[in-house]
Design a protein around this nucleic acid. Structure first.
Lengths: 398, 398
DNA sequence: AGACTTTGTCCGAAAAACAATCAAAAGTAT
DNA sequence: ATACTTTTGATTGTTTTTCGGACAAAGTCT
């Protein structure tokens, strides 16, 4: 026995179904909606009223007449509410506010070490969010949900980081609980690479169902979208390819304790270290980037070799999950085409024709925005789900 | 406009929803069903009637009384109809008939080379199926759907093999069309490794959502179940790990044209070839198995090395998709623990603690039946889907 | 301007689900 | 053995939801 909601306005009950159709933002007439859903025109009218009442849908001007009275069109009202998408990285944090269509309204990127711990970082996050909102003429009450990416393994169901290597104080911290106490809404938390994968797929390849997003920066990780859904694996550690062993590095130690890890050979710090060892004066990956752009051959060769190392692992990934697109993101991928060239060289050589003939390997197009976009989408997926919409209309009519 | 079904019997409309609850075969009383679904007892009664009418549900004796009148229980009627599951392998074919609970009623395994082409093989399949059915006192009219596994890449949506290397004459052949003309039902066709993965998961690990099934026989392939669903990839070639390159084989040519493929190093024929090269008199993998069982050290070493080779690839797979169980199947895996030991050695050494601490690596438990079970499940998934049930009740009341 | 077409709304009819009632079937107590 | 209690399973009237037609409104076309 768990049904208490009685005072439902007429039509509101199943209005969420109609809403799912309109989530894409495409304006439609009542007649179109009726023929798509198979419902009677009167029923559509009833449900539309409920959605208009919630302000989730707005009438958009009139469509052109086909001989008779011109129909009015209805579409998602993107500015009814907002979601917050945050990417809390190792050293920098980006917070964005998106409307209901997923369009980012504003973002702000700030230096903010995750190592300051959850209380400090989240308090800052809340403060920053309030500022961004008031800058948009919004209040925290407009927030429907929060999406958040963290630089470590996260148990997505509970939103708690699990044994994160670089997030002291965050292990097991109840992030959604904190957010709920602060803003009264649900928070969806995930690994930062996962939200980047979602963001990139939605922004650049909305029709692709099998995308492998690879982030190459301080570490190396992948986000896997298969069959249109993000794959997290049994413990949520799917995509952790940074510590896969590669041939070239048999005797190079990695901070994980093993030898020959991809991350010890092809990450930003690893590339810089290799160049330093061969006598080039570089401090960080930033210096390497400058040298590559200046045409320094050693640096170019090192980056391309890193690409080949990554390609070695990705070749196996291609055979295993058969994606149609591999996207390279992260700071190292922005060095230019050299990394990409190395990856392509190895992947296309080693993959079976069936898997590689339709495979594109490209650079991230969403780049820095990918994470915030992905976090917003995670939030929207929850906030605009049929269940959430039903709950909204139930609350409204109560 | 696409609604024509008007003459629906009362309650039949949404009866499929109730049916999904009862698919597990667990008997339930009307009161239980009402409290689970949240529907009124009278509504449950109405829908149950519709399902009883279709014979999909039977009353099972009475449950024990709790002081008053004992309730009668209702459960799936497994023997109402059947599905056919077939595994058409390279040289042998297995056909099975399962009831609606997925329990295999009868199987028959016969030497039948797939290379005879679709017309010959499928005609034989149809004939064999009829015989099996009449042996069970059934007719082809009892078939709800057919599931089928083929030894090559299959475009699952259309059921057509695509560029299969060992199936002359099958490329692009419309298998579901053929089956539909013969039996009037839908056929679900997939790669044989995929159906084995489904079968193994359902039989041995029904609660696991992330399972990697690896078949080691003449070839090497994997079936991936992630998040509870089989992953097929963009072109349906997900799991084709046979031609991933491994370190040890840098100079060993593979029939695919590349060098160092896993299949060229660790498949049944490859193990036999390596032993022959080192002077052991073996013709096939069968001979190797005999030697291993007899305790021949060279053979054991060769098998264990194959396990380590496979483990090398699987270590990457574990990092990438984070399964909770890896199952080894196929003829080579039946040699004993030696292959498994090799796999475990490498996988546990190379995987991150987070991914491997909850990882089991085991031998197939369903073994030969896995494929037929999986094919049956594929058929049942379709045949007992809400849509199919709705269609059945619509036809019934028409 | 008038005929025509299509939309948007209203309203009664039909269908579905609900809630309450009641007889039947068993166990339990006397 | 009989009365009583409890819970099922069927029935009936009520409420909610959806449908389908009717009709006015708002345009286009001649």
């Amino acid at each position: 026995m768990e049904r208490e909601i009685k005072a439902t306005a007429p039509g509101s009950a199943a209005a969420s179904e109609l809403f799912q159709l309109l989530r894409d933002g495409v304006p439609r007439t009542r007649a179109e909606l009726a023929s798509i859903t198979g419902l009677a025109r009167s029923t559509v009218a009833l449900r539309l009223d409920a959605l208009l009442e919630l302000d989730l849908i707005t009438p958009i001007g009139a469509a052109s007449s086909s001989g008779g009275r011109p129909p009015s069109q209805y579409a998602l009202n993107p500015s009814a509410r907002v979601v917050v998408g945050a990417d809390l990285g190792a050293t920098h944090a980006t917070i964005g506010v998106a409307d209901l269509s997923g369009a980012i309204q504003v973002t702000r990127r700030t230096a903010r070490p995750i190592a300051e711990g959850p209380d400090v970082v989240l308090a800052w996050f809340a403060q920053e969010t309030r500022e961004l909102l008031s800058g948009l003429g919004r209040t925290p009450a407009d927030i429907l949900a929060v999406g958040m990416g963290l630089p470590g393994p996260v148990e997505h169901d509970t939103g708690r980081p699990t044994n994160p290597p670089i997030m002291p104080g965050w292990d097991g911290f109840d992030v959604p609980g904190w957010v709920h106490r602060e803003f009264g809404v649900k928070a969806l938390v995930d690994n930062d690479v996962n939200i980047m994968a979602i963001g990139e797929q939605s922004r650049a390849f909305p029709t692709a169902t099998d995308v492998l997003f690879v982030k190459v920066a301080t570490g190396i990780g992948a986000g896997i979208i298969s069959g249109g859904v993000l794959q997290r694996g049994a413990q949520g550690s799917a995509g952790d390819i940074g510590h896969v062993r590669i041939e070239r590095g048999a005797h190079v130690p990695c901070r994980c304790g093993n030898f020959g890890c991809l991350e010890a050979m092809a990450s930003g710090p690893a590339i810089a270290a290799q160049l330093r060892a061969s006598g080039t004066d570089v401090q960080s990956m930033g210096d390497v980037s400058d040298l590559v752009r200046a045409g320094d051959l050693d640096s170019i060769r090192a980056v391309r070799q890193a690409g080949k190392d990554i390609g070695e692992v990705l070749a196996t990934c291609v055979s295993l999950i058969n994606p149609s697109i591999i996207v390279l993101g992260g700071s190292v991928s922005r060095v230019g085409e050299h990394l990409l060239a190395g990856v392509r060289e190895v992947v296309y050589q080693r993959s079976s024709p069936l898997a590689s003939q339709h495979l594109s390997i490209v650079q991230s197009q969403a780049n820095e925005d990918a994470a915030v976009i992905g976090a917003s989408i995670l939030a929207l997926q929850h906030a605009l789900s049929p269940e959430s919409i039903d709950e909204m209309s139930a609350r409204r009519s109560a």
